[in-house]
Amino acid sequence: MAVATRPDPRRTGRLVYGAAVVLLCAWVLVPLYLLFVNTLSAPETVNSFPKSFLPEMDTGSLAFFARFAGMLDALWNSVAVAGLTMILSIVIGAPAGYALSRFDFPGKATFRLLILLTRAFPLPLLALPLAVMYIRVGLDDTVLGLALVHTTLAVPFAVLITFSLFSGIPLELEEAAWTLGCTRLSAFRKVVLPLILPGITASAIFAFVISWNEVFAAAVLTIENRTLTAFLLQNLDTSPLHLKFAGGFILVVPALVFIFAVRRYLFAMWGIANR
């Protein structure tokens, strides 16, 4: 930063800084833009050369995607699995997050370790043995079976995120409610829940995105009822380009919207996960 010989080093520094910011934004946005260009162009254009850097605003590729056999089912499966993962991970994870934030109990450290440990393991690998186990119990190739694996991925985050959210609500508020005539449950319902709801929604969305994006376990555990990611992966070699791009587009758009929706919580979530 110390460009002492220049007439105005501060100005130069600011310029370099501004340029770097713009460049890094472009680094993220340009590839996304190019995917949109491809998606919003007719299949023939997508396969032609050279390409225009402007979209045609043609829905041909998307229409082809919608008509492609099994694609809409895969889309529906993805939504169903992600939705189920979202519900499961919050229902299972949030109580533990509450316990971690409100109680000191013997075994708390061990429990936290178990939660943190899950992050040190390549979790999608779980799908391998579970594939066998599922056949035995009839969960193979089902939405629920995959959602359970995705919940394993999402639930540690749900625990840590809700832990941080609950910790952000002063215990005093709950205590005040108790002294004013609430039971533990009614204090939770009347005071904690309304305050925590946006945060819970954010972590639910986060769980949704984790499941929505997951490829490996989805590909291992589903055969007939493929999710969108599994379907695209399976057909990577054979499907035409415009189908891949339209599929990629459909994968990306909800994720974009969701990250936008939870952006306020992103940092609070990860900040606490550090400790």
Partner: peptide, 10 residues
């Protein structure tokens, strides 16, 4: 009834 240090106003 209790009054808390940080008031605990909901």
């Amino acid at each position: 009834a209790m009054v808390f240090q940080n008031y605990a106003v909901f």
